[in-house]
Design a protein around this nucleic acid. Structure first.
Lengths: 341, 341
DNA sequence: ATGAAAGCGCTAACAG
DNA sequence: CTGTTAGCGCTTTCAT
């Protein structure tokens, strides 16, 4: 049935091509293309004919070919430390979902908290000529930043906030979140603050914030233990005990993650420490578990879903040539006072 | 510097092309291609020359073009209900990581527990000519199954087990897991079993298993409440209270998810119910929180990471023409007896 | 070991 | 509104 059946090459697909549809519908190949991509440009009757042919042949357009011809892939790549952390999985979920609704798809990369991985992964994504790139945080290898800036490809950095984005930015200040936590705890009368968190960059920023705010108050001290993993649970609980041993007067602990905080609350129960009587616990993120805890967890809510959605919208606006309202969006955070602190 | 600088088309990339590298290295274009894809076929000196040129120009091969020419995309698509659920995020994490190590990348789709979404998403993936597809579960729309079978594309279904896979299968029997939970609870002396879980298909299978095992014992009853969402926390806790009201003699509850179980344990503390004295709680999955709980959570461990890795390996073996040891892998599960039941 | 030629399946420009 | 022509940048035969 083929028009020109030349010696079929190795990679030759056994699938129907646009030409087959054109033949079937008795129109030119380009008309089929238009029926798919710009249906409004066609006469209703022509459109129908083509659609019928597509239907009949079960034709599925080859987007790879389309991408090559149009220099647009309709793929967005996102790089996060790991999707096992609810922090990022919910943002990615929202991002992918929003993109999907507009015909874009998400290619996923994970760094496992290694900067060098990030550079390598993005390199691979650039090779795929993705239409946009989403990065976690604002700290990247210098070569990566340069490459990205040179490429002119839309980039969104998320989950942090800072003065010199590569391109666009959607996040919040982790430092300020740490300060807010300190302010909250201090206002509630706690004086010996502890910090439980990993070595991850954003956690560290929150710790800095905590320290700086605490430093502005007499009689307020900060005790921190970094656990070995970036967002730990088991280690975290061990660290709580260690922390309490080092600073017996510890009266409140700010955890870098609600899951860690939830585990800490369990550990306090195990130790027979009253929360918040003997020790107050504050979390971070406002994950679902935070409101299920007993006592309910005081925490800092960050807008995980909104970050994903805003990131998607920014990218879509840019790709579709719409004006960008604000290149750097600070979505902030909310201190949620519950029972645990 | 271009060889033939014709009127630059719209989508014309400003990037270096293979030809630019060839010019720079004074070799034929195809030699550059080989330097990248089959370096062993080249004379060492030629290879060096080309690599130097690539380096000098900062050349990044266009994988879209390569994909079109070779009919291979090196992209694997995976569809899960949602990555917000740790169940799937850890499997996807392992999958993506393993694929990445072999030069494959992951395109992510989420159904949000709607079968129809799955069909639509996979359709889009097929348009991208992905090299393989990963599906969650063994229940799909009929049209999807047919399309997939007809396409001949490698498919792995995961997180369940059953007799008629579309192609390959990596998972475990949720039904058997439910039975195992019942057997465990009954052996520990519990008689009025409760079930807390969502309407999700795999949860339902576990409930069926629980019921069927319970049915084989006199004096053992099962009380179930389905919560409104597929894997709920807040509702789940409310349901626990409801369940206990309906069946005051309830002595053990099997939760469809460790997070739900952890929340249930918190709720019991709030109600002043001793766990496991007044009520035993059993979870599912063995998430990190399970071993941090107080009391530590008795649960069923499933091999989330291993499922992702096996899925990747199966796909890679198939794509690279290696023989497939077993097309359907049952990775099983382990009952982990801790303190809560 | 290297090269020349011929597409992969589609979209964009330019007519008509 | 529809068609013709010319590639997108790469990989694959097939030849040397």
């Amino acid at each position: 049935m083929r028009n020109t059946p030349p010696k079929p090459r190795a990679g030759a697909a056994s699938t129907n091509r646009m030409e087959d549809v054109a033949l079937e519908a008795q129109v030119a190949l380009v008309t089929v293309s238009r029926a798919i991509n710009h249906p409004s440009q066609l006469a209703p009757r022509t459109l129908e004919k083509v659609q019928a042919a597509i239907q009949k042949l079960g034709y599925v357009p080859n987007l790879t070919a389309g991408s090559l011809a149009s220099a647009k892939t309709r793929i967005i790549a996102a790089v996060v430390p790991t999707i096992s952390n609810s922090f990022f999985s919910e943002t990615i979920e929202a991002l992918a979902n929003t993109l999907d609704q507009h015909g874009y798809q998400l290619l996923l990369g994970q760094t496992f908290y290694r900067e060098a991985n990030e550079t390598k992964i993005v390199e691979a994504f650039l090779g795929r000529r993705v239409d946009g790139i989403v990065l976690t945080g604002i700290h990247h290898e210098k070569t990566l930043v340069e490459r990205l800036k040179a490429s002119g490809i839309p980039v969104v950095e998320m989950w942090e906030h800072g003065p010199h984005p590569i391109d666009m930015l959607v996040g919040f200040s982790n430092f300020d979140a740490g300060r807010a936590a300190a302010r909250f705890l201090i206002a509630r009368g706690y004086r010996q603050l502890g910090y439980l968190g990993g070595y991850e960059h954003r956690s560290q920023q929150r710790l800095q914030g905590l320290r700086q705010e605490a430093g502005q108050h007499a009689n307020v001290s900060v005790h921190a233990i970094e656990t070995a993993s970036p967002s730990p649970i088991e280690n975290g609980v061990a660290s709580l005990l260690e922390l309490k041993k080092q600073a017996p007067g510890l009266d409140a602990v700010f955890c870098s993650n609600d899951m860690l905080a939830a585990s800490a609350i369990y550990e306090c129960a195990r130790q027979n420490w009253k929360v918040p009587g003997d020790i107050a616990i504050m979390g971070f993120a406002d994950l679902p578990i935070a409101s299920a805890c007993h006592p309910r967890l005081t925490t800092i809510r960050v807008h995980r879903k909104a970050m994903g959605e805003s990131t998607a919208r920014l990218l879509l606006d840019r790709l579709q040539g719409r004006p960008i309202a604000s290149m750097a969006q600070d979505l902030g955070f909310d201190v949620i006072g519950r029972e645990s602190a």
